Amino acid sequence: MTIDNPPPGGVLIVDGANVVGSVPDGWWRDRAGAAARLRDRLAAAAVEGGVLAAVEVVLVVEGRARDIGTTEGIRVVSSPGSGDDTIVEVAGAAAGTGAGPVTVVTADRGLRERVAAVGASAVGPGTLYRWLE
């Protein structure tokens, strides 16, 4: 099943390392640069009228990408350790606020199970890239 657009009024949490790693474009040579490019693509889709404008977008980064900084329309969360643990924490906190549907973008099956346990749903990187087209 594919979702045409992210559920409006909710929170979209992006597993930065997983999404960047889903496209073999040389990201491994510049992890921070690849994460910054993803952040900027997300920001472009979060501006008024863009497909992500109706959701809060959270990009979780880790490792060498931790210091990419934030940009308008995107909340960047730098994980001090395991990105997966941080994603579960952010998803659980968002689900607990009743702010609307919480969707995590990742292809990691184990992480999908963990976020489902805290009340979030998950879609794969391919779905996110379709939303960004």
Rank of each mutant, 00 (worst) to 15 (best):
L38G: 01
A107W: 01
V55A: 01
D25T: 09
T97G: 14
E133Q: 14
P7T: 10
R41K: 13
G110N: 05
E48Q: 12
V51M: 08
G92N: 07
E62F: 12
R109Q: 14
V57I: 06
I87C: 05
V11A: 15
L59N: 06
V55R: 00
P24D: 15
A95Y: 08
A99L: 09
V60Y: 02
R64L: 13
V104S: 00
V102W: 05
G110M: 01
R31Y: 03
G98W: 03
A32S: 07
L111W: 02
V105N: 00
A36V: 02
G69K: 03
R109N: 11
A45M: 12
V104M: 00
G26S: 08
S82A: 13
S78Q: 09
L128T: 07
R130L: 14
G100L: 05
D84M: 01
P6C: 03
W27D: 00
R109H: 15
V14Q: 10
T2A: 14
V23D: 05
R39N: 04
G126K: 08
A54T: 12
I87S: 02
E48L: 11
S22Q: 13
Y129V: 15
S79H: 07
A93K: 12
V105W: 00
G50N: 10
P24H: 10
N5H: 15
D4K: 12
R130I: 14
M1F: 14
G83M: 00
I13C: 01
E48V: 08
G21W: 06
S82C: 11
G96I: 07
S78N: 11
G63Y: 11
G10P: 11
A54L: 11
N18T: 03
V104I: 02
V105E: 00
G124L: 03
A17S: 13
D15V: 05
V19F: 01
V19I: 07
V55P: 03
R41L: 10
G10I: 13
N18H: 03
P125I: 02
E56D: 13
A95D: 07
V118G: 06
V123R: 04
V51G: 07
G98T: 06
G96C: 06
G73C: 04
P101V: 13
T70R: 12
L42D: 05
V88F: 04
A91F: 02
R29L: 13
G92T: 02
E72P: 14
G83T: 00
D25V: 09
T71L: 09
R112M: 10
E89L: 14
G33P: 02
E89T: 14
G26Y: 07
V60G: 05
G16S: 02
A120I: 08
A32L: 01
A44N: 08
G126Q: 08
T103V: 10
A45V: 10
I74N: 03
N5I: 15
T2L: 15
R130E: 12
T97V: 11
E62I: 09
A120F: 06
G81I: 09
S82K: 08
G110Y: 02
G21M: 10
V14S: 10
A94E: 08
A122F: 00
G73W: 02
V58G: 02
A122W: 00
D30N: 12
L111D: 01
